[in-house]
Amino acid sequence: MSGSDLELIPAGTEFTPEQITHYADPDTRSLEQAVLDADVLVSAPHAGAAIPEEVAEFLSPALTRRLQYDFSDVSTAAVVVRWAEIDPRIVAVVNPHPRLIRDPNRAKPADVRADLTAALERVRAAGAWQPVDLTGVDAIRPVTFSFFPILEVPGTDDGIARLVDAFARTAEQGLGVYERTRDALTEMFLANGLERGGSITRLSFHDTMNTTTTREGAVSVARAERDMLPDVVALSNRGDHRGEPRDPADPPTMDGAALRRLADAHRDGFEVADPGAVRLNQPYLGSQEILAAGARFRALAREAGEAGLGLGAVQAEFLREYLLGPEATAQLRDPGSDWVDEDPARVDALAHACKRAWDAFRDGGA
């Protein structure tokens, strides 16, 4: 499949905060009013799939639209946007760039260029399609988690330098806007909360499949048992399987009892019969977005206590098969290079389930 079959963002596109921020009734409410009315700030760091045209020349010729989309959480975008449209108690911000540009759910490297250069050199040394350890330099991955090539690693140092510069420049047109908007919204929520009390939750919204891809594009290779998501969603606060402290050096980002109530509310809102369809901190503990929010909230603990403000941050990792539905999932199990069409009715149902879950949480649980 040629590069023209990929979804690209036209060169020169610079996103604005208004384009990536979503809330209910924007024709009759300002953003400031929406923040006043809301108690949940939803961020979707991996929702973008379209690739900026500025880096298209560096893409691997093996990259297909299916692999492009599979390396994102694109299924979350429509759900989060629709949820924001119907629920005046949330504000949402959606990253328009793919994690390929740089992953905002990883700590931002002190030197982006140096880390990407190191990652490229490791991939080049390992060889095409070969497993490679990107520990410590995976904020920008030249390969997928199945080690499919995303980037065509240049064969010269000058070529790598040109690629690295292109990525660093392009990031500011979308990813950088997302990060600044997310952080500015967080401060708006906090300013209101410290004045009025109540509660604020930062929710980092994701999805993952329980299978990875073959070279032929079939998303059918089962993950290791330890990496399997539950049937609906994993909710994470960096705690143990009950949401309680796991490591004194890594405190929970949300109170354990509150996380358990949130899990019960999701079982209710998503109408699941098996309690195991919603699990806590399994298989993921939660990553950079809730780590950063948790640290910010702990720094404000005294002021928040005096203001009667409850603070928490949670990561929701939905099973992508659940978001897509059985028909779309079956299509992806077969070899291919295309992606599936979203079902608007399913997106709407999922958005309403999210709203029901968080309404139940506010009411004290299921």
Rank of each mutant, 00 (worst) to 15 (best):
W83N: 02
G312D: 05
A110P: 04
L134G: 07
L262E: 02
D111L: 09
E57R: 15
G197P: 06
P248I: 06
I51R: 07
T144Q: 00
I20V: 04
R89N: 10
R102C: 03
I160G: 01
V93Y: 00
T117N: 13
T13D: 05
D158L: 12
I140N: 11
I290E: 02
I200Q: 06
G269Q: 03
E225R: 08
P335A: 08
A171H: 11
A184P: 01
T211S: 13
P26K: 06
A357G: 14
Q315K: 04
E216Q: 13
S75R: 10
T214L: 13
L36F: 12
D240I: 07
G48T: 06
L67V: 01
V132F: 10
Q33M: 13
H46R: 11
V40K: 04
A234C: 15
I51H: 01
G176R: 07
A128V: 15
A24N: 07
I90D: 00
G310M: 01
Q331N: 08
R180Y: 03
T144S: 15
T213M: 13
A360K: 04
A307Y: 00
D338W: 06
D231K: 07
A92R: 05
A307P: 01
D359H: 07
Y284T: 10
F71R: 02
G136Q: 05
P230W: 01
G312E: 09
Y178C: 09
P96Y: 00
A353H: 11
A277H: 15
E195Q: 14
R215W: 03
D363N: 14
T214I: 04
H241E: 05
D359A: 14
D255R: 09
R202M: 09
R302F: 08
S146K: 03
R356V: 10
K108H: 05
T144R: 00
R320S: 06
Y322W: 14
R122A: 05
D338H: 11
L259I: 11
D5E: 15
L67Y: 06
L36Y: 10
D363Y: 06
Q19M: 07
V278M: 11
I86W: 03
A47S: 14
L262Y: 08
F148M: 10
T186A: 12
R260W: 06
G48L: 02
A119E: 00
E216A: 15
R261S: 12
R362C: 06
G256Q: 10
F205C: 09
A110R: 06
R296I: 04
S204N: 11
V80M: 04
W339Y: 14
L120Q: 03
H266G: 04
P251G: 09
A299T: 04
R279K: 10
V278N: 12
L235N: 08
F270I: 03
A191G: 03
A114D: 09
R362K: 11
Q33C: 08
E172Y: 08
